[in-house]
């Protein structure tokens, strides 16, 4: 019988530390997973998902600043705390102890650099004023295809009048789908309601899944939020189960941020054009009326 149980147990969703707290210890994951999150204006974003053997919480120890993010147990997790005072005393005796910490930090900086480069590229392409909403949606989905390997994908926007999700752009089997989902209906409808991005490893066992002729094993469903207003969702799916990773979820979340801005810009541009057209019509009518009076 296994009797391990080193460290402290945290249940799913339990907070290990919060952003802004003073950091006196760092942590090593013994079992389970821990997600590092930050709350931004568009909601909670997962920065990283850590595995057994990974260390976290070391930044506050070294830069002596408050915690820069939250650490939350993802499922049941067991974590060993490492006391700052003892760690620094040991490092003082044996500086090579920081090799592993430097390696972990370098790895994190490298993957952040890669993510940043991808997002900068996406931002340059997506966040530009495009008068055509459909073309904007197509551009966003093209970028999503570059970030995540998926067989099918769609971008659905909420029709404010009908209160239904309408497919604006799609690829793969989703291209032929003409489904209109109500808010709260199906996985996409639920994500629209909750505003929380989801990674579903086994779609068939998800009770929200609406049966369709398309074979779907796993999927990512990301809300498009701008100033707490959810405009729609991006769906990416694959026929095999467990196809997507938490890193895919994280990068799609980041893309969704820029995508929302682009959609808002497109919407604003359309409204502006409508208003300008209105003003032009009025001005023309006014001119004609003035000519008649003369």
């Amino acid at each position: 019988m296994l009797k391990g149980e080193l460290g402290r147990n945290y249940t799913d969703g339990e907070i290990i530390f919060r952003e802004g707290e003073k950091g006196e210890v760092m942590y090593a994951i013994q079992s389970g997973k821990v997600k590092i999150t930050r709350v931004t204006s568009s909601g909670e974003t997962t920065i990283a998902t850590l595995q057994p053997g990974d260390i976290f919480g070391e930044m506050a120890l070294f830069d002596r600043l408050p915690r820069s993010a939250n650490a939350v147990a993802l499922g049941d997790a067991r974590v060993l705390s490492i006391d700052k005072k003892k760690l620094f005393t040991t490092i003082n005796r044996d500086p090579t102890l920081v090799f592993k910490i430097l390696e972990a930090m370098s790895h994190r900086i490298r993957s952040l650099n890669e993510e940043l480069a991808k997002l900068r590229d996406a931002k340059a392409k997506v966040v530009k004023v495009c008068p055509d909403m459909k073309a904007t949606c197509g551009m966003i989905l093209d970028q999503a295809k570059e970030f995540v390997k998926a067989e099918n994908g769609s971008l659905m926007l909420l029709d404010d009048r009908e209160k239904k999700l309408v497919i604006m752009a799609a690829f793969g089997s989703d291209r032929v789908e003409k489904a209109h989902l109500s808010e709260g209906y199906g996985i996409a409808g639920d994500v629209l309601k909750t505003g929380m991005a989801e990674l579903i490893n086994c779609v068939s066992s998800d009770r929200r899944f609406v049966r369709s002729p398309i074979e779907i094993g796993s999927m990512l469903c990301i809300p498009l939020k701008c100033d707490q207003h959810i405009q729609g969702v991006i769906n990416m799916s694959h026929s095999s189960e467990n196809h997507f990773s938490l890193e895919d979820l994280s990068i799609m979340n980041s893309l969704a941020f820029y995508a929302s801005l682009a959609l808002q810009n497109a919407k604003n541009f359309a409204s502006l054009r409508k208003a300008t057209d209105g003003v032009l019509i009025h001005a023309t009518l006014l001119n004609e009326y003035a000519a008649e009076v003369d």
């Binding site: 009797k3 080193l6 490492i82 003892k86």
Partner: peptide, 22 residues
């Protein structure tokens, strides 16, 4: 405690099957 924390920083995590009791 000190060795356990130090080797954890070194990237050596003791699996449950090795630990007889925490």
């Amino acid at each position: 405690e000190l060795l356990l924390q130090t080797i954890a920083v070194e990237g050596i995590t003791l699996p449950d099957r090795v630990v007889r009791k925490g």
